[in-house]
Measured scan of single mutants.
Amino acid sequence: TETYETTDETEARKIAEELKRRGLTFRIERHGTTIRIESD
Rank of each mutant, 00 (worst) to 15 (best):
His31Pro: 00
Glu5Pro: 01
Ala12Thr: 02
Gly23Leu: 02
Gly32Asp: 04
Glu9Thr: 05
Ser39Gly: 04
Ser39Tyr: 14
Glu2Lys: 09
Thr34Asp: 02
Arg36Gln: 03
Ser39Asn: 03
Thr3Tyr: 14
Glu29Val: 14
Glu29Lys: 09
Arg13Glu: 10
Glu29Pro: 00
Arg27Trp: 14
His31Val: 12
Glu9Asn: 04
Ser39Ile: 15
Leu24Lys: 09
Arg13Pro: 01
Ile15Ala: 01
Glu11Asn: 04
Thr6Trp: 01
Arg36Gly: 01
Thr7Met: 07
Arg21His: 06
Gly32Met: 02
Arg30Ala: 05
Asp8Phe: 04
Glu29His: 10
Glu9Gln: 06
Ser39Gln: 06
Ile28Leu: 04
Arg22Met: 06
His31Ala: 06
His31Trp: 10
Arg30Pro: 02
Phe26Cys: 15
Leu24Trp: 04
Thr1Gly: 11
Lys14Trp: 08
Arg27Glu: 12
Thr25Ile: 10
Thr3Leu: 11
Thr10Lys: 10
Thr1Asp: 06
Gly32Glu: 04
His31Phe: 13
Thr25Arg: 14
Thr34Tyr: 08
Glu9Arg: 06
Arg22Asn: 04
Glu9Leu: 10
Ala12Phe: 05
Phe26Pro: 15
Lys14Asn: 09
Thr7Gln: 11
Glu11His: 07
Thr3Gln: 07
Thr25Cys: 15
Thr10Glu: 14
Glu17Ser: 09
Glu9Pro: 13
Arg21Gly: 06
Asp8Trp: 03
Thr7Glu: 12
Glu17Trp: 10
Arg30Lys: 10
Thr10Gly: 12
Thr7Pro: 03
Glu17Gly: 07
Ser39Leu: 15
His31Met: 11
Arg21Leu: 07
Phe26Met: 05
Glu9Val: 08
Arg21Gln: 07
Thr25Asn: 14
Arg13Ile: 11
Thr34Gln: 05
Glu29Tyr: 14
Ile37Lys: 00
Gly32Gln: 02
Arg13Thr: 09
Phe26Gln: 07
Ser39Met: 13
Thr34Phe: 07
Thr10Asn: 13
Ile15Phe: 08
Glu18Pro: 00
Ile37His: 00
Leu19Ala: 01
Arg27Asp: 10
Arg22Ser: 03
Lys14Tyr: 08
Ser39Thr: 15
Ile35Gln: 00
Ile15Met: 04
Lys20Leu: 12
Thr1Ala: 11
Thr1Glu: 07
Asp8Ala: 02
Gly23Val: 01
Asp8Pro: 01
Arg36Ala: 02
Glu5Ala: 04
Thr3Met: 11
Ile15Gln: 02
Glu11Gly: 02
Thr7Ala: 06
Glu9Met: 08
Phe26Ile: 15
His31Glu: 09
Thr34His: 06
Ile15Asp: 00
Glu11Ser: 05
Thr25Met: 09
Ile37Asp: 00
Arg21Glu: 07
Arg36Thr: 06
Glu11Leu: 11
Glu18Met: 13
Arg27Val: 13
Thr33Ala: 13
Thr10Trp: 10
Asp40Ser: 12
Tyr4Lys: 01
Gly32Ile: 01
Lys14Phe: 08
Arg30Glu: 05
Ala16Gly: 06
Glu18Arg: 07
Glu5Gln: 06
Ile37Ser: 00
Lys20Met: 11
Ala12Ile: 04
Phe26Trp: 05
Gly32Lys: 03
Glu29Asn: 06
Arg21Tyr: 04
Lys14Pro: 01
Ala16Asn: 01
Thr10Asp: 14
Asp8Val: 04
Thr34Arg: 06
His31Gly: 03
Phe26Ala: 12
Gly23Asn: 05
Ala12Val: 05
Thr7Lys: 07
Thr6Arg: 01
Arg30His: 09
Arg36Lys: 08
Leu24Ile: 13
Arg27Gly: 04
Thr33Gln: 11
Arg13Asp: 07
Arg22Phe: 03
Glu17Arg: 09
Glu38Cys: 15
Asp40Thr: 14
Glu18Phe: 10
Glu29Asp: 06
Glu5Phe: 12
Arg30Trp: 13
Thr34Val: 13
Thr33Asn: 13
Thr10Ile: 11
Ile28Asn: 02
Leu19Asn: 01
Glu29Thr: 15
Ala12Gln: 01
Lys20Tyr: 09
Lys20His: 10
Arg27Ser: 09
Asp8Thr: 04
Thr7Tyr: 06
Thr10Ala: 13
Glu38Leu: 15
Gly32Asn: 04
Asp8Met: 03
